[in-house]
Design a protein around this nucleic acid. Sequence first.
DNA 1: TATATTAATCGTAATATTGCAATATATAAA
DNA 2: TTTATATATTGCAATATTACGATTAATATA
Lengths: 111, 111
Amino acid sequence: MGITKSEIFTETQNEIALLAKAFGHPARVAIIQYLFKINACVCGDLVNEIGLAQPTISQHLKELKQLGIIKGTVEGTSVCYCIDQTKWQTIKEVLGSFLDMDNCNANTSCC
Amino acid sequence: MGITKSEIFTETQNEIALLAKAFGHPARVAIIQYLFKINACVCGDLVNEIGLAQPTISQHLKELKQLGIIKGTVEGTSVCYCIDQTKWQTIKEVLGSFLDMDNCNANTSCC
DNA sequence: TATATTAATCGTAATATTGCAATATATAAA
DNA sequence: TTTATATATTGCAATATTACGATTAATATA
């Protein structure tokens, strides 16, 4: 096993899980925070900022890129990475409405 | 390797990552959605609702319980699981402010 | 063209996650 | 006490993730 049975869940459930998974590693959280902070960056900065080896950072960047959370444009020998603002809004909506689930039914707790 | 270097990240970064990781599997997303929907539940219901074996569900419930996201009280031979509303508010604040990062600096995008 | 710089990719080791069958545990009912 | 029911735990196989050294690819500069 070791493989997630995505086919038995709804599209929304899988989307929430995929996005949450992207934020499920502190290095990727740190990368995103740094990109927001300086609003543009090259991979080398991140290697210095975060204490992980260059291939490791590159791998995390790839994951974020594959999900469309960040985008990178080549600038000479380096790459300028930044947050995809449009995608970020979508993520906020998807995860935001998931987190806001407690407002949908004004119930009292059971236990 | 295969082990996350938590010690090089801030407490907040690790907290965000841990919480996000909890939502990083569609089964756990589905469990949480179901618990919110019916606002009280036993494990057996979840096994029927979600198409995974009983030990698998039990394992996912354990993870959510360890993080304090859900709590369970024994009722006869079954266990009543439900969302910890207080913890949920904390989660909303932690992840919410992470997602709201784009509002902190009114920058324009770089790329 | 040769060399330096930067980031991506490859290969691999260590560890984590997912899933389930089998079993154990705990309580309720007969 | 025996039996049924519900959930937890154990053990294990398959796969995924994390991390990094070595290498490659691509561009800039001397």
